[in-house]
């Protein structure tokens, strides 16, 4: 048996393990607390086919998309500046790391006071979560560019634009994708927390509403859909990340 098919089987076994544990928890806790994997999957299927579900999914998706774009633009810009200037980078790094480990949820009320209830608040809150890892990764990527690359570009007589597109970007891309991968996870977290706390639309809102009506199956189905979507997107990013890093 080839290596990759062994790997595929192992992955399937892990998934099976998760489902088995879930089923056991369901049998232990009962329907009122944890719905069975089968019932949850069924409800998830119903949700996917219903018209009422998609506006909420779209709201979350849109908020996530905007937040990611903002986090990426600010993170790339600030990270490049900090990475290019040694003193600024040295000053900023511990501050960024400290910001990274703060429970940013405490700032959510400020966001609500500034933006009000709605899409903007969620986008801002998601972006706040995502921007720091993107900045840190970009900064380190720019800072750690092999100086031989830059000397080479000078020897070859390349202009600043050419250097940026043909040297800087390819050399930093793998780390930037790593930053985006970590940033994606946190941005999604930010958006979802935003929806759980004060929101009238989105997947997080659906979870809270289901809890309010004691509809465990729907709550778990929405959770399942979110988790599967998140893992799929993260896996795709991880795949790209690994591909890019193997090349270097």
């Amino acid at each position: 048996m080839s290596r990759s098919s062994v790997y595929a089987i192992d992955i399937a076994l892990v998934v099976l393990g998760i489902v088995v544990v879930w089923q056991l928890l369901h049998m232990g806790a009962g329907d009122v607390a944890i719905s069975s994997p089968a019932a949850t999957a069924l409800r998830a299927g119903e949700l996917l086919l219903s018209d009422a579900f998609w506006p909420h999914a779209a709201e979350t998706g849109l908020a996530l998309f905007y937040a990611l774009v903002i986090a990426l633009m600010i993170g790339l810009g600030v990270g490049t500046l900090l990475g290019g200037h040694r003193l600024s980078g040295d000053v900023a790094e511990p501050i960024l790391v400290a910001l990274y480990s703060l429970p940013k949820i405490t700032l959510y009320p400020v966001i609500l006071l500034v933006f009000g209830l709605g899409l903007e608040a969620k986008v801002a809150f998601g972006a706040i979560h995502g921007v720091i890892p993107v900045t840190i990764f970009t900064m380190n990527a720019v800072k750690n560019i092999n100086p031989v690359f830059l000397r080479t570009s000078r020897v070859l007589g390349m202009g600043p634009m050419q250097t940026a597109t043909h040297i800087l970007l390819p050399a930093t891309l793998p780390e930037i994708v790593s930053g985006l991968r970590v940033g994606f996870s946190l941005t999604l977290l930010g958006v979802i927390i935003g929806e759980l706390f004060a929101s009238h639309r989105g997947m997080g809102f659906l979870v809270m509403r289901a809890i309010g009506t004691h509809d465990v199956t729907t709550m778990m189905a929405v959770t399942l859909l979110l988790a599967v979507a998140a893992v799929l997107i993260a896996s795709l990013l991880l795949y790209i990340d690994n591909r890019l890093h193997r090349r270097v």
Partner: peptide, 28 residues
């Protein structure tokens, strides 16, 4: 072998917004 199989799950773990489980945990 277990490690190889778990690696992608560990790396994507933080993409799952675990707070959605919180209401469930309160419920339980």
């Amino acid at each position: 072998r277990l490690r190889r199989a778990l690696d992608p799950f560990l790396t994507t773990y933080y993409a799952v917004p675990f707070f959605v489980f919180y209401p469930l945990l309160v419920y339980i």
